[in-house]
Amino acid sequence: MTISKDLINPFVISAIEIIEELEGEKPKRGEISLIQDTTETQGVAVVIGITGNIEGRLLLDVSKETACKFATYLLKEDFSEYNEIVESAIGEMANLITGRSASLLNEMGYSLKITPPTLFTGKELRVSDKKMKMIVIPLFCKSGKLLINVAFKE
């Protein structure tokens, strides 16, 4: 299956909207890249499954430092250290982005559901998808770099 712009744009639009609502400033979008096999994350990866008439997943990839800053914006209190509350906040952000994306995609005629987020942390965390091509879109936010990694089954 070819991953069309129509399928990717809702994720980018939703992420930009949510981040702008939180930070008060629109993030800048970087160059899109297509990754066939394996990629290394920045330290915190949230994975949300997408099911329905297409199957795939969204992976939000940030550093721990950026995760703390997003948590600060989301929860309106300071987080200087990465902990379970920051983890929960990033999971919540992923839910918000994917929920809004699924809504946009469903308006386009897709019939999609999203799964609860799964969070992975660690240095040199590698993501490998043999069956799915990954499209990676970087967003440069006040809090740091967020990589939107979308993959759909071929």
Binding site: I85, S88, N95
Partner: peptide, 8 residues
């Protein structure tokens, strides 16, 4: 079910 949201 979100710890973060319950806290907020």
């Amino acid at each position: 079910d979100s710890l973060a949201f319950r806290r907020l």
